[in-house]
Design a protein around this nucleic acid. Sequence first.
DNA 1: GGTAACTGGGTTTTT
DNA 2: CCCAGTTACC
Length: 675
Amino acid sequence: MFDHGWDHGLDDNQLAAAAHGDGPLVILAGAGTGKTRTLTARVASLVDRGVPPERILLLTFTRRAADDMVARAAAMCTRPDAGRRLQGGTFHAVAHDLVSRNTEALGLPLAVSVLDRSDSTDVMDFLRHDHQLDDTDVRYPKASTLVDIYSRSVSTGRPARQLIATEFGWVEPHLEQVIAILRAYVMRKRERGLIDFDDLLLAWRSLLADPLLGPEIAGRWDHVLVDEYQDVNQTQVDIVHALRPTGAGLTVVGDDAQAVYAFRGSDSAHLTGLTSSLAGVTVLRLERNFRSRQRLLDLANAVRPTSGEHRLTLHSDRPGGRRARLVRCHDAAAEARAVADAVLTAAQDGRPLRDQAVLMRTGHHSDLLEIELTGRGVPFVKFGGLKFLEAAHVKDFVAAVRLLDNQLDEVAWYRLLRLHDGIGPARARALLEILGTAQMPESAAPIDIDAQAIAAAPAISRTSLALTLATLGAARERRGIGDRAAGCLALLRPLLTARYPDAVVRIADLDRLVSAAESAPDLGAFVAELTLDPPASTGDLAGPPHLDDDYLVLSTVHSAKGLEWPVVHVIHLVDGAFPSDMALTSSAGLVEEQRLFYVAVTRAEDELSLYAPLRMPHHRHARDDKHSFAPVSRFIDEEAMVNLDVEQLSPPRPAPVRIGVPARVALPTLDDLWA
DNA sequence: GGTAACTGGGTTTTT
DNA sequence: CCCAGTTACC
């Protein structure tokens, strides 16, 4: 074999995938089987075969995965400029780029604002109000439920009526009103230049369906490679199909047992279906695992949901190892202590904190653990759960920036207006009628509009509102990105200071955001990108200064997908927590939880500990009988149990009971205190 | 009467 | 952080 660089260290199956020709290729890759390595090697091999790098498109679901893959592929290529020319990104980022360049063709205003989920909920709330669905005497579906229905409907291609009938039964009494609101939601966004996450994909699909633009866009790429294909929804399937209609030049990688995004419209049937529906498809399997010790894979294979023809069985390159531990704890507090003990013990045994991770079903499952870790001085970083962007002040800043370009952005106005004393939901809505209405750039002077709004505002808010509008107007006149961003911060400074007790910290956050924005090519794009891919913590923005510090990672299983650590702790393995009580009612939900558990288990390289608290504050069902292994976790059946070492932590010793006369304790009097 | 501001209890997962 | 319920203001 010639040494191309990209084929170095690949096994036969990986090599077959990397060197595969132009026909459609489906790679079924189990966890830890070198999927990324294979995909990047394939990219490098294509480039070596003479495919121009810019004619290769790598699609992923997270920007981290996209950046990672482009960088690694570039490193394998013999062409020095490949990294710059390779096209890669998340579905949503690529879509956003295309949408921004084609707003006119799409019939959108020149400037569009990207809505995250909570922005979408705000829009839905306006409509709920307009349609009088916010009366308190009848329980109408909440705005967030409406967003759920809308999103699931468009991303799966199922009509809302059908979706409501099968999965949102409690909404049916208001079916007609809900349908009317969903229609209005589409119109409202279009009028105001607002696009949500689903719209980005829908717009890309529409562009591809256009007789003129479609072929031009699809024609930009000869090869399309899609990572994590088990997580695509119907819109994404349509996009991929429009990009590579015959399947030639298409490579997809995935593992149906790791499909964990059904709640956002994904369906792993899209992956499994491809293996039979695509003419001339080559299906390759990667089952050789380079990550985990065999003992851990035995457990992984036993808990992996079976999936008929696409059964994959992982076998390790790294035999032996320790069996996973199942630690049964008395309650969540005992669990937190046990995890902290284990983390510190491992650290003493030469596993730095950075080699360990604690995984959980939902963000707040680590609440007690975080207190415990803080108390013991163990540094940690948390992924998943509340994001930096969800902090109120960051959303305020994003709103201000969006208003620079898009004055029709009512969601942004609504947010900003309510920061003023004396302006609540109702007054903000009234002011929106004035401020958020379209004025053509050349028509009525904006000053008049501002004056009108100030006059309409309650007296107490007029001074600060006038200042806000003036600062915003001034920032709009600026051209430099740093100046514009600084203007937005200047606008917020008095408002945040008045509103939040910890305003100093929050403003310092925004200072960092402003300096990060300065190096961006365009402020609007910077904010849109921030929305599409929010940094997990403020630390992310400042670059990696604490990279040489040692810290423990706490993460939701969803956010841990694709990552690995030598030592992994999975906490809260108890019905109602993991699996989530939201999923307990449907079998589809339970299978998804099982896949999520499989993802968690397969993150570990050397050591895996599973923690099962027996008593949870809100769950009385966990029984205390210490010797029965039956209700350990519904994820672990008898076959899987064989691969576990079970440890039972003794319950905490009850506080000693004192019998006798209670001591008399005198509370201090004022005179005592002043003495 | 209509709002804003405050209080207390609860929270799935994410592009 | 969001929501519902309550109080207090104009």
